[in-house]
C-alpha cells in the first residue's frame, strides 16, 4: 500500500530525496580521494529510489524511469568500465592499464580521472540493478504498491 494519504511522509521524502541523490554522487566522485566508491554510492542512490517507491507508490516512480531504462543503465555502466579497458588497448597498453593512456597523451592525473569514470560506471550499474530488483519485488506483492 502506498502511504499516499500521509502528507508528512510525502513531504519529508520529497525534501530528502534530492539530498540523498547529491550525497550518492558525492560518494561516487569522492572515491579517488577519500572514503567512498562506486559500490557504496550506487547503493545510496538506489536507496533514494526505494524511498520514492515507499512514499509515492511504484506507478508514479515508474512513470519517470521504468525497468527498461534501468536495464539500459546497468549495461551502460558495464560498457563504461569495459570501454575504458579497450581504450587502454588502443593506446598500446594492456587491458585496463590506465597508465598507457596517461603516458601516450601526456596529461597529468589522467590515471585518477579514468578511475573516476570507472567508479561512475560501477555506481550506475549497482544503482540500476538494485532498483530493478526493488521494482520486481514491489510488483510481485500486488499491483497497488
Amino acid at each position: 500500500m502506498p502511504v499516499r494519504e500521509n502528507v508528512v511522509i510525502r513531504t519529508v521524502s520529497r525534501l530528502a530525496v534530492p539530498f540523498i541523490q547529491v550525497f550518492a554522487l558525492y560518494v561516487i566522485v569522492h572515491g579517488a580521494s577519500g572514503a567512498g566508491g562506486g559500490f557504496q554510492g550506487g547503493v545510496v542512490f538506489a536507496a533514494s529510489f526505494v524511498l520514492m517507491v515507499i512514499a509515492f507508490g511504484l506507478g508514479s516512480v515508474r512513470k519517470r524511469i521504468d525497468n527498461r531504462g534501468f536495464m539500459i543503465c546497468s549495461v551502460l555502466g558495464i560498457f563504461a568500465y569495459a570501454g575504458i579497458g579497450f581504450l587502454c588497448l588502443l593506446f598500446a597498453g594492456n587491458y585496463l592499464e590506465y597508465g598507457a593512456i596517461e603516458a601516450a597523451l601526456g596529461i597529468p592525473h589522467l590515471h585518477g580521472l579514468l578511475i573516476d569514470v570507472v567508479e561512475a560506471g560501477i555506481g550506475i550499474n549497482v544503482m540500476a540493478v538494485m532498483t530493478s530488483i526493488i521494482y520486481d519485488i514491489a510488483e510481485q506483492r500486488g499491483k497497488s504498491l
Binding site: 572515491g31 579517488a32 580521494s33
Partner: peptide
C-alpha cells in the same frame, strides 16, 4: 596510481580486472 585513496587504487587499478568481474557478477544477479 596518483590518487590518495589506497583502497580505491587497489580496487580499480591494481585489481581492476577483478573488479570488472565483480560488476559483471552483480549484473548477472540482477
Amino acid at each position: 596510481v596518483g590518487i590518495e585513496n589506497i583502497v580505491t587504487a587497489i580496487l580499480a587499478s591494481y585489481r581492476g580486472f577483478d573488479t570488472l568481474g565483480e560488476v559483471v557478477v552483480i549484473f548477472t544477479a540482477g
